[in-house]
Amino acid sequence: MSNLLEVNEVSKNFGKFKALNNVSLSVPKGSIFGLLGPNGAGKTTLIRIINQITMPDSGTVKIDNEFLNENHIKDIGYLPEERGLYKSMKVGEQALYLAQLKGLSKTEAKARLEYWFDRLEIGDWWNKKIQELSKGMAQKIQFVVTVLHKPKLLIFDEPFSGFDPINANLIKDEILHLRDEGATVIFSTHRMESVEELCDDIALINKSNKILDGKLIDIKRQYKINTFEVGLKTDNHEVVTHELAEKFEISTANFKTLDNELKLNIKLVNGDLPNDLINYLTTKGELSHFVELIPSVNDIFIETVKNN
């Protein structure tokens, strides 16, 4: 699969402050790409460079194998974290204006707006002013404006902030739907559970440097610690624990079961395979629980940022 976006060794300084240091990443076409990092890491600067709001000091950005240029403005839909609309302008008028700035003709913008307003059931807002709407309502308008011109690349910075769970879910479904229709999505957020749920690829930026990137599955594999959560029904907890400790690395686990079993996290060492562990455990008692511990994005995030 080819890449829609390729960022190649991009650096950016603001005075003496280095906002980005030789950052490279590639976003595969049709994927949802999670751009992660602590506050102030340089995510917004990178997004602004992709949007041609700021120019990089060095490095290149390519979209569809073409160096970034003015024609790409209409190919990108950007929902910034700091968002807002003209307060005293009417919803419809404002959406039309913003769509026209993205290069849509007035009639086409209108037709598509009607489609979207219908889809999100906000058709009766057309003549309302933004200041009459609630925050969540304004966010919906903003979402529509972002996706209206059917951009190849969608960039969402914290898209779910300000939404109630129902509307957040609605927006999530719309994002997935857009991806299915062929759009590529860059997704910047601090909500790790939505990264877990939505993203195919991720990149982690910390202190102006990219410290991790790749397919989410590969990264998880890479961070897998060969540890299994085990529940074992046995008569003598202490003896079994002692015996296990000699063969494996163990620690106490914390999960809920119905009976009073021996609960342990067991890490395989010396090249043992999971089957070896199962075989060994069945000789000690009745195995009631056996789950491989897969690191969450949250764990990976915290660990890599700390170690960095």
Partner: peptide, 11 residues
Amino acid sequence: SRIIEVIISSV
């Protein structure tokens, strides 16, 4: 009103 970033991603 923070609309500026949306606008200057277009113009």
